[in-house]
Computed example of a mutant assay.
Amino acid sequence: MPELPDVEGFRRVLADCAQGRMIERVEVRDAGVLHGVSARRLGSELEGRKFTEPERHGKWLLAHTGGPTLLLHFGMTGRLVCAAADDEPHPHDRVLFTLVDRRQLRYRDQRKLKGLWLADDPQAAKLLDDQGPDAQTVSRADFDAALTGRRGRLKAALTDQSLVAGLGNLLADEILWQSRLHPSRPTGSLTDDERATLYRTMRSVLRTSVRAECVPPRDNWLTGHRDDPGPAPCPRCGTRLRSSRIAGRTTLWCPNCQPESAS
């Protein structure tokens, strides 16, 4: 599932492929990815405009045009691809933006769980209003404010987009493992020092992941062992990792490095 680092990679694709270029044609091959806007209106609003500098907030990509802003969310399988206009479309290419120099920006998505909105639609504006501060740029004070006094489990808080936007399953597990915090810890039980460690670790994991445009499967990271056959050893202490569903997600942790109760 695309998380903040992946979407930052898509932002770079959009900037490199389309920024400053006029949109000649919008071809909607599957209207099932459009929300609150028809294929006809999408084309009439965007054709003849230029993509300007894009932005990212959490898992959302904002494609500005100097007029309407196109909002993109990639769900579990979405991505942006830059292609030549005469390249054969992929079966999962849902919307094609042909640019003036015959480049083509393609929204590709197998499962179609999210898609595209126009920002002047009230529903689209509300989607961003519900987002918390971006995980890559949130201040320590705002991060503390989001977590202090929260009920529920720590992993659920980290993946709650209304608290901090951009963290998904892989990032949350990696950040908690590197912080030595159990994903089921009550969020309100964290000490000031533990919140400080969690914040520093989040920033460090995000810096590395944004450079890689994904959560990298490093051998010395938890992420590098999610797909190991059988119970994998913790890359830090060698204890067998455990897996269960926490906050509705398959969650991986080390019972030795991440004790369930506060020390």
Rank of each mutant, 00 (worst) to 15 (best):
D129Y: 02
K112M: 15
R108I: 00
L113A: 04
A125F: 02
L99I: 07
R111W: 09
D109P: 02
D109W: 01
H92W: 13
L128N: 04
L116Q: 04
R111M: 11
P122Y: 00
G115I: 10
Y107F: 15
V95M: 01
G115P: 07
L113I: 11
D120Y: 09
Q131M: 15
L96I: 12
W117P: 08
D130L: 15
D109E: 06
R108N: 14
D129P: 03
D101H: 09
D130H: 12
L116K: 05
D109G: 00
Q131G: 00
L127V: 07
R94N: 13
H92R: 09
L118H: 00
A135F: 01
L99G: 04
D134C: 11
L127A: 09
W117N: 10
P122M: 02
Q110N: 12
D109M: 02
P133D: 05
H92D: 14
K126E: 15
A125N: 00
R94W: 04
D120P: 01
Y107N: 04
R106M: 00
K112L: 10
V95A: 01
R103H: 12
D109F: 01
D109Q: 03
D134W: 09
R111F: 05
D121F: 05
L127I: 07
F97C: 04
R106I: 10
W117K: 09
R111L: 14
K126R: 15
D134P: 07
L116W: 02
G132M: 02
H92G: 04
L105D: 11
T98E: 12
D130N: 13
R111E: 03
T137Q: 11
R94S: 08
G132P: 05
K114Y: 08
G132L: 05
L128M: 05
Q136W: 06
A119P: 02
L113M: 14
G132F: 01
R106W: 06
A125D: 09
K114V: 00
